[in-house]
Design a protein around this nucleic acid. Structure first.
Lengths: 336, 336
DNA sequence: CTGAAAGCGCTTACAG
DNA sequence: CTGAAAGCGCTTACAG
């Protein structure tokens, strides 16, 4: 069943069917009704590949989301959907796996869907100017910036929190409450990822108060998985190193650690305080509830869309926007 | 940059470029190298819409996933990806929102991508024969069956657990451990969804032991959100109804309830036992760890793929496969 | 308001 | 091994 069949059955031309399907105003009510009746009777659905091939331009904005299971993205995506819709554009979303190339995915989508612009959610963005050249529409990176890339500020846009600063604040908070043996729980400290830049905030805070970051207080686990954090923490605890607090660079890691602590009979926060960054929903349901610095999810999404649309409509330049985090007080920080 | 440009620059025909790009064997090494050099130099990426339009058939299998944030699906999806790849097919995945029409999404994808078959993950599948007619390739519903639809067994395939039976077992377990005031926590009991069929298991178990399911022990919340479960439970607790256990029809609901209980000073499992169904990862990290009946995620995925491929290759008929759940013992069931 | 025709960027028999 | 040409299913000026 193609548009040709519908045309034949309705007794009109293919052009007319196309007009009806696309709600063009210049079709008589009579013909419109007739065509729609056939369309419904035969349950006709246009081929989108053909449609986007035929179109010379679209009103599509692409969203590439890295990491299918990250609960952290859910509300950001929702916000982005809403705002793009509201602005009169159409969202085309695609999820990619942790190991896939987001730039390639974006470049492909750009061609296939004739995108006007792109948003990358949760990408790494430690790219070079050459790599970025693969995509030729405006784009903004949401929730991560180019902290470890070599791009200058005039050639990309991003909306994110200040990871280092937030980590710095979190650790300072622990210090202020009297903690002096603060361990850091992270995933691969040298992968140019968020793990690394948050770790730098930890180091900065310790250094500032005259403490020396030591190797033995670094708990490095394999991934951001809750299970890996659990096993990693357990192994670290077996070393018997003294500590009175943990700064986890992500809620997910903190949740894994909490189980490990509990199994070892270490009471949070009496024996060990914990603070993290992210503010995903479920961490508030832990017992005790996790104290954490929340990313402003809705704001991240909204700001990304605004920025991109300005770029598309030539109303703005590339910018790197930093949004503040919000501390969510849970029950995992004690006063020493 | 199109295939035509590449052809011109390389000094060969469009057909030849296409052959190189698709790894056809009948191209001389010389030409292949020359073309690839140009492709790389110009960073050429083929247009997929045009590609699938041009092809008369593909080796694509579609996966429609309902509910972007459901952590329960992550490992199922991963398994499906692997198995489809292994069988020599190509996976095309799409996420849809809770309110979108999965059948429509499937039908569109079927045309756009020239699918050989489809897997629906987390759909409702309470469809009629007419509605199903929209899609004309074989498909299987993963993780939900047609319990409330009107399809006869010969026209659809599904792989799922036995929801009613599992709920029945869960409640019987609570009863066996001495609980006599068992509340049920569910989301909209009459929406033809999994909530309803699990609720029936609850009723069946109570009835079997001579207890009468009463209205006051039904905690019905708005959605499967953890937050809704939390608020709903809190409101229900305010009524002051006596109870000694909760059967939650989903882990997510149980987690929300646990926080509400804790805030009211009700100790789990001393004052109230809890058992749920699903077995998502994070519920094992609650304190206390949730006791729950796990869906066999990998098995669900694997079996769906096997079934679909048999259907595609005409080696099998439509079947409805029921997989057993596995009880994960946590710390939320006490003996009364 | 409607239709014929060109074109979107590919693939794929068909010849050679 | 390579190329010319038709075709995939749409859209969109261009005429009328």
């Amino acid at each position: 069943m193609t548009i040709k069949d519908i045309a034949k059955i309705s007794g009109v031309s293919v052009s007319t069917v196309s007009r009806v399907l696309n709600n063009h105003p210049d079709v008589s009510e009579d013909v419109r009704r007739k065509v729609m009746a056939v369309v419904e009777e035969y349950n006709y659905i246009p081929n989108n590949s053909a449609r986007s091939l035929g179109q010379s331009k679209s009103d599509n904005i692409g969203l590439i989301v890295r990491g299918i299971s990250n609960p952290f993205y859910t509300s950001i995506i929702h916000e982005i959907e809403q705002d793009i819709e509201k602005a009169g554009y159409t969202l085309v979303m695609q999820q990619i796996g942790a190991t896939e190339d987001e730039l390639l995915a974006g470049a492909m989508m750009e061609r296939d869907k004739r995108l006007l612009g792109l948003i990358f959610l949760g990408g790494r963005l430690d790219y070079t100017k050459e790599q970025i050249a693969a995509i030729s529409v405006p784009f903004v990176s949401c929730s991560s910036n180019n902290a470890y890339g070599s791009l200058d500020d005039t050639c990309y846009s991003s909306v994110s929190i200040d990871d280092t600063q937030t980590a710095y604040e979190a650790v300072k908070e622990l210090y202020k409450e009297g903690h002096r043996r603060i361990a850091v729980l992270l995933a691969r400290p040298d992968d140019g990822s968020v793990s690394q830049i948050r770790y730098e905030g930890y180091v900065k805070a310790l250094t500032e108060v005259g403490m020396v970051p030591t190797e033995d207080l670094i708990m490095s686990v394999d991934s951001y998985n809750i299970a890996d954090a659990y096993h990693g923490t357990k192994a670290w605890l077996d070393k018997g190193i003294a500590f009175d607090a943990i700064f986890a660079i992500a809620d997910n890691l903190a949740m894994g650690a909490m189980r490990a602590l509990r199994e070892k009979g270490i009471i949070v926060p009496k024996d060990c305080s914990i603070v993290a960054i992210d503010g995903i929903e479920v961490s508030e349901y832990m017992a005790p509830a996790l104290s954490t610095y929340c990313q402003p999810m809705e704001e991240l999404g909204k700001t990304s869309v605004d920025l991109l649309i300005d770029l598309i409509e030539k109303k703005g330049e590339h910018r790197q926007i930093i949004l503040p985090t919000i501390f969510r007080e849970g029950e995992t920080i004690a006063v020493r």
